[in-house]
Deep mutational scan, measured.
Amino acid sequence: SEFQINEQVLASWSDSRFYPAKVTAVNKDGTYTVKFYDGVVQTVKHIHVKA
């Protein structure tokens, strides 16, 4: 599913667990740039983002 900029989502971290994050960019290659609550910004594949 498509997510929008500033949408609150759950994004997987390197430990494969999902954490609350905010979408900061929707990228043309189908990835999302997300910002976790601790301030870390990461680009993740769409399969690693869920509502």
Rank of each mutant, 00 (worst) to 15 (best):
T31M: 03
V23S: 00
V49A: 08
Q8I: 15
N6L: 07
T24D: 02
V44R: 04
V9Y: 03
S14C: 13
N6V: 04
N27E: 03
K45S: 15
D15S: 06
A25S: 10
V9A: 02
Y37M: 12
I47F: 13
A21I: 05
P20D: 04
N6A: 06
Y37V: 08
F18A: 01
I47E: 14
I47W: 12
K50P: 06
T43F: 08
T31V: 02
K45R: 11
E2T: 12
N27C: 06
F18R: 00
A21N: 01
G39L: 05
I5N: 04
T24P: 00
Y37N: 10
K50R: 12
V44D: 02
T24M: 15
N6D: 12
S14G: 15
K35R: 12
Y32N: 00
G30I: 00
V49I: 14
A21F: 07
S16Y: 07
Q4V: 08
D29Q: 01
A21Y: 05
W13M: 11
V23M: 01
A51V: 10
V23G: 01
I47H: 14
T24V: 15
V34W: 03
V49S: 08
K28R: 10
K50T: 09
K50Y: 11
V26W: 06
V23Y: 01
A25T: 06
P20E: 06
V44E: 01
V40E: 11
A25I: 07
T43W: 05
S12F: 14
F36Q: 00
R17K: 13
Y37F: 13
N27T: 04
K22G: 03
K50E: 06
V9M: 03
F18I: 04
H46N: 14
T31S: 10
W13R: 15
L10K: 00
Q8N: 14
A21Q: 00
H46V: 11
S1A: 12
Y19V: 08
E2H: 14
N6K: 04
A25N: 07
Q42T: 12
Y19N: 02
V41Q: 06
A51I: 09
V44K: 03
A51D: 07
A11K: 02
R17V: 12
R17T: 10
H46K: 15
D15M: 04
S14I: 13
H46A: 15
H48C: 15
V41Y: 09
V41M: 08
F36E: 00
H46D: 12
V9E: 01
V26H: 05
I5E: 06
F36N: 00
F18E: 02
E7R: 02
S12I: 15
A51N: 08
H46I: 11
V41C: 07
N27G: 06
F36R: 09
T43S: 07
I47S: 14
L10T: 04
E7F: 08
V34E: 00
K22E: 10
F3W: 08
S1P: 13
F3G: 03
S14H: 12
Q42R: 15
W13V: 09
Y32P: 00
G39P: 02
V23F: 02
Q4R: 12
K28G: 13
V9F: 03
H46F: 13
S16V: 07
A11G: 02
F3Y: 09
T24L: 15
S16W: 07
K28E: 13
D29L: 02
V26S: 03
D15C: 12
V34G: 00
T31I: 02
G30T: 01
S1Q: 13
E2P: 12
L10Y: 12
F36K: 00
S12Y: 14
Q4M: 10
K50A: 07
F36C: 06
R17C: 14
G30W: 06
I5H: 04
G39M: 05
S14R: 12
Y19F: 10
N6Y: 09
T33G: 02
K22S: 09
T24E: 10
V9D: 01
E2I: 13
F36I: 02
K45E: 11
F18Y: 12
A51T: 09
S1E: 11
Y19H: 06
D29G: 04
S12D: 02
E2C: 15
T33S: 06
E7T: 09
R17D: 09
G39N: 06
F36A: 00
T43L: 05
D29W: 04
Y32I: 11
Q4H: 12
Q42D: 06
F18G: 01
V23W: 01
H48E: 09
K45V: 08
H48R: 11
V9S: 01
V41E: 12
W13Y: 15
A21T: 02
T33M: 06
V23L: 05
T43G: 03
V34Y: 02
K35T: 12
D15Q: 04
E2A: 13
K28M: 11
L10H: 05
H48F: 14
V34L: 06
W13S: 08
N27D: 03
T43Q: 07
I47P: 09
G30K: 04
S1T: 12
G30E: 03
V49L: 14
H48T: 07
H48G: 06
S12W: 14
A25C: 08
T31H: 01
E7W: 08
G30N: 05
V9L: 02
I47M: 12
D15G: 15
V9W: 04
D38C: 15
Y37Q: 09
F18P: 01
T24Y: 06
V34M: 01
G30S: 01
V26C: 08
S16E: 11
V49R: 12
V40T: 15
S12T: 10
F3C: 06
Q8P: 10
Y32V: 09
S16I: 07
W13I: 10
D15Y: 06
A11M: 04
F18K: 00
D29R: 01
S12P: 09
V40Q: 14
K50D: 07
V41F: 08
F36G: 01
T31N: 02
Q8W: 15
V40D: 08
V40L: 11
V49F: 07
N6W: 10
A51M: 09
V9I: 08
V26R: 06
V44M: 06
T31F: 04
L10P: 00
I5M: 08
I5T: 04
N6R: 03
T31W: 07
E7D: 15
G39R: 05
D29V: 01
V41H: 06
D38R: 07
R17W: 08
E7L: 07
K35Q: 15
S12M: 15
S16N: 14
A21W: 05
A25D: 04
H48I: 09
Q8H: 14
A21L: 03
V26T: 03
A11C: 11
D29N: 08
Q8T: 13
K45Q: 12
Y19R: 07
F3A: 03
T43R: 10
Q42M: 14
K22M: 14
E2R: 15
Y37D: 10
Q4E: 08
F36W: 06
E2K: 14
T43V: 13
A11D: 00
K50F: 09
S14L: 12
K22N: 06
L10N: 03
K50W: 11
K22W: 13
S14Q: 12
K35C: 10
Y37L: 10
G39D: 05
V9H: 02
W13D: 05
L10D: 03
V23C: 03
V40K: 13
N6E: 07
V41I: 13
F3P: 03
Y37W: 14
Q4T: 11
V26P: 00
